[in-house]
């Protein structure tokens, strides 16, 4: 469960990149965070994960404040950043065992978990190679594996679908569904409306730092029809998604 409470952030004084954002993501839910480029999605995710300090408000992850109790809060989520170019000089297996050490995963369990995840994503056979030799999609996959090793209760992903082929994208969506079914939380940002439509229990739309809508996808479509300004935003997002 992720509770975002009246959070604001400005990189430059006077220009709020996220403006009084309040949002609850419940257990067992897949939540899609939508918005055009520069809307504040990454900024929000950076604040949830403790990368960025917020100017106002607070964020709780399973009841632990990222502000007051960062270490405990960080144990409660797995994070997949928007750029998967991490630790390129490490071998896949070295990266994963390193992550296992970071999240304190016992020996017998880590082997099982690493094999399960990497086999699912079909990168098991690449684990002995440096991540540098991986394609963009494969890098994305190994980072996802790293984030899921500790079986976190909350799963936070920034633009996870970019660069994945249809099969991997399908697998990832399946994993998100499984994750949610087990009563855990998935929070991800995306441009692709289609993904949001098929996958998300609820979506939120952010534009210029302000949350303009929260609800189910059907509710969103309904609302778009009613409000002309939202319709325009909708077009903006869909246009972007076609470029992907």
């Amino acid at each position: 469960m992720i509770e975002i409470k009246n959070v604001s952030k400005s990189y430059i004084k006077g220009k709020k990149s996220v403006d009084s954002l309040t949002l609850d993501i419940k257990n067992g839910e897949i939540f899609g965070f939508l918005g055009p480029n520069g809307a504040g999605k990454t900024t929000t995710i950076r604040m949830i994960t403790g990368i960025l300090n917020m100017d106002e408000g607070d964020i709780l992850i399973d009841g632990k404040s990222i502000k007051q109790n960062p270490l405990e809060a960080k144990k409660n989520f797995g994070f997949v950043p928007d750029s998967p170019d991490m630790f390129l000089k490490l071998k896949g297996i070295e990266y994963l065992t390193f992550m296992a050490d970071v999240y304190d995963i016992p020996k017998d369990k880590r082997k099982e978990k690493i094999e399960e995840l990497t086999k699912k994503f079909e990168i098991y056979n690449e684990l002995n190679n440096e991540i540098q030799s991986y394609s963009h999609g494969m890098r994305q996959k190994i980072v996802i594996c790293g984030a899921l090793l500790s079986e976190p209760k909350n799963w936070i992903l920034d633009e996870p679908m970019t660069g994945l082929d249809p099969k991997s994208s399908f697998d990832l969506k399946e994993m998100m569904r499984e994750h949610a079914k087990a009563g855990k939380t998935v929070f991800f940002s995306t441009h692709v409306l289609e993904v949001a439509e098929k996958l998300c229990d609820r979506v939120g739309i952010i534009n210029k730092g302000k949350l303009v809508f929260v609800g189910t996808f059907d509710e969103m479509k309904q609302k778009f029809k009613e409000e002309a300004s939202l319709e325009k935003l909708f077009l903006e997002i869909t246009e972007k998604s076609e470029n992907n």
């Binding site: 050490d101 970071v102 304190d104 690493i114 684990l127």
Partner: peptide, 23 residues
């Protein structure tokens, strides 16, 4: 590029190290 090495993962890789060591 990097050489395509043995696909079989050395079982030693799985041992849990102390964090300071692996970091």
């Amino acid at each position: 590029g990097a050489k395509k090495s043995n696909k079989k993962i050395n079982q030693k890789e799985y041992t849990d190290g102390k964090l300071y060591k692996s970091y």
